[in-house]
């Protein structure tokens, strides 16, 4: 059993699974289907730790020198 969380690592940006309503507003905002989002494998260490299931959408908050914070979304897929 691992005794630390990957999410605490300085170089790992914040990952979170977003709720249904947020998913809807995201898809509405970009006028896309879920399949048009960038993907992330379920076996990705961070996703494994979050315990996300296939079809969930991970919101990734990255630090940016120019934008302060930048948001990225990934659809969790089977591997």
């Amino acid at each position: 059993m691992r005794k630390f969380s990957l999410l605490d690592h300085n170089s790992v940006p914040k990952h979170e699974i977003i709720q249904e309503n947020e998913v809807k507003s995201l898809l509405d905002k970009y006028q896309i289907e879920k399949g048009q989002l960038p993907k992330i494998k379920q076996s990705d260490p961070v996703i494994k730790e979050l315990g996300a299931s296939v079809g969930d959408i991970a919101k990734i908050t990255r630090n940016s020198q120019t934008a302060g914070e930048s948001l990225y979304y990934r659809l969790v897929i089977d591997d």
Binding site: Y30, Q36, L37, P38, R62, S64, A67, S70, Y72, Y73
Partner: peptide, 11 residues
């Protein structure tokens, strides 16, 4: 139509 970046250059 698959998104590569949500904002050009992420910023």
């Amino acid at each position: 139509g698959v998104i590569v970046q949500f904002k050009y250059g992420e910023d």
